[in-house]
């Protein structure tokens, strides 16, 4: 069996497993898993830039939130139907990521991290400042009746789960396929050695630009889906915390792996779920996980598995 066949089987198998889980899990966990799948989509978007291209953005929340506000405001204020609103959210994120990329890619390393952090902060503050429309910190709720596609109510737990799975599957398959194509291999080349890649005749700036746009657009798609599926839009999703979360998920699951983001989100979600039952300082877990990962397992869960046992893992 070739590596390609194995990776196709792995991804299709994962989606099949998720379908079964969706059907058998009790409603509570079904809801959790739907949320995990949408957040994992966000993590997949982040991973395109951080894991595969080697660019660490500390401001991805602005893309997630751009998708969320783009979609949410279109429905809430514009009364748009779900599918067009989703499109509006995705376009908003794509445009924002193009602008941010053109500016931020003039810097490298630590400066890139801080520039993205600052842009995201400005976005977050703008969301608060425009409270008249965005609802600021409190956000707004999207009317239940409007959250349906062709008669299927997205408020129904099972429908919502399958909608989340569809979003996740699209992002997973797109990125898995992309990393097999020459374009994706060049992104890895940029991550490993940008100068060498440039001297092999690749326009590395253009590749990085596209990587930011693809990454930002997938993240924005996740944000738009979150708004539609869970019916709530708020400035919290634009805060620094939501820029740090995808970093944590991807580091934990395994940067530069296709299934790492999902593993990272699922692990963290249930860890925080458990910890928040014990203390209101549950974010302590986030801090401890980040420090431990930095110190001991920079490859993350899937990355360590790949290193030790299954070298072909995509």
């Amino acid at each position: 069996m070739t590596v390609d066949t194995r990776s196709v089987l792995l991804h299709l198998g994962l989606i099949a497993l998720l379908i079964v889980l969706g059907l058998v899990l009790p409603t509570y966990h079904q809801g959790n898993l739907a949320r995990i799948l949408v957040l994992a989509t966000y993590a997949i978007g982040f991973n395109v830039l951080f894991g595969y291209t080697g660019l660490l953005s500390l401001g991805h929340a602005m893309f997630f939130a751009a998708g969320m506000y783009g979609c949410g405001l279109a429905m809430h204020l514009g009364g748009w139907p779900v599918l067009s609103a989703l499109g509006a959210g995705i376009i908003a994120a794509a445009v924002l990521s193009l602008i941010v990329a053109l500016l931020a890619l003039r810097t490298i390393g630590v400066a890139f991290m801080i520039v993205t952090l600052m842009f995201a902060q400005a976005f977050f503050l703008t969301a608060l400042y425009l409270g008249e429309w965005t609802g600021g910190d409190e956000g707004f709720v999207i009317a239940q009746a409007s959250r349906q596609i062709a008669g299927f109510a997205l408020t129904d737990p099972l429908t919502r789960f399958f909608a989340a799975l569809a979003v996740f599957s699209v992002a997973l398959l797109i990125t898995a396929r992309m990393m097999h194509l020459p374009f994706g291999r060049v992104l890895i080349g940029v991550r490993e050695n940008e100068e060498r890649t440039r001297m092999l005749g690749y326009d590395t700036f253009r590749h990085k630009l596209l990587a930011v746009i693809i990454s930002g657009t997938i993240s924005g798609g996740a944000g738009a889906a979150y708004a539609v599926l869970f019916g709530y839009v708020g400035a919290t999703f634009a805060s620094v915390q939501y820029s740090i979360f995808p970093l944590l998920w991807v580091l934990l699951g395994g940067m530069g792996t296709t299934i790492g983001p999902l593993i990272g989100v699922a692990f963290m979600f249930y860890l925080i779920d458990y910890a928040s039952g014990l203390t209101n300082a549950y974010l302590l877990i986030v801090g401890a996980a980040l420090v431990l990962l930095t110190l001991f397992a920079r490859a993350g869960i899937v990355g360590e598995i790949r290193k030790r046992w299954v070298p072909w893992l995509p």
Partner: peptide, 20 residues
């Protein structure tokens, strides 16, 4: 020497060739 140290020889040459 500026090779891709963490990639396989195959991947190194494939990047140079521009195809796999």
């Amino acid at each position: 020497t500026a090779i891709y140290a963490r990639l396989s020889l195959f991947d190194n040459v494939a990047l140079a060739l521009g195809r796999q």
